[in-house]
Amino acid sequence: MDKFIKVTGIVAPMDRPNVDTDAIIPKQYLKSIKRSGFGPNAFDDWRYLDPGAPDIDNTTRRLNPDFVLNQSPYDKASILIARENFGCGSSREHAVWALEDFGFRAVIAPSFADIFFNNSFKNGMLPIVLDGEIIEDLFNKVASESGYEITVDLQKQKVITQDAEEYPFEVDAFRKHCLLNGLDDISLTLQHANEIKAYEEKTKQSAPWLFQK
């Protein structure tokens, strides 16, 4: 997993609540058995005027000029600001893979759906919850200045605007540690293999039916 320490980049606004994972990556692209290559189909229904399919060359499709991520400089954005309940719906991690492949490293919203929030951390992408009023202020700043940049400093747990305003955010200590160091959860868990085995032995006594073949 990629480390996440400090990221500075252009902020793109996604000004609607309840952006669901079906919108972030439509179902037809979930047929892939790979983890990469979803970026060109991020927000596919909103981004293109022509319908898409897994085997269509996206460069031949007409872009929707009204969609924010098709507009310069947002096509180069690495930070997304959004409204309530971002990432609701399906558990598809493909949504995080698509955002990451597009170039996003952080999403800032007043609230996130739980599964999306969790999936982000597994892919070196940081979901940040900030107060609705701060987000509103960020939307205004981005609207008034093209290419508005902010810095996300995970070590200090701060969002820092280009106007030097600082907004602290919360993050679980364990998740922060994993992101800062780019740690693989599975190898961390396997360090506790003996405890897992001990749990299994104990449960075989108390609830043997759970191990009935």
Binding site: H94, I115, N118, K122, I196
Partner: peptide, 14 residues
Amino acid sequence: GIGTSEVEHVLATQ
């Protein structure tokens, strides 16, 4: 429900 990274985690560690 879980994402694919967690599917892998459960397969490898239960």
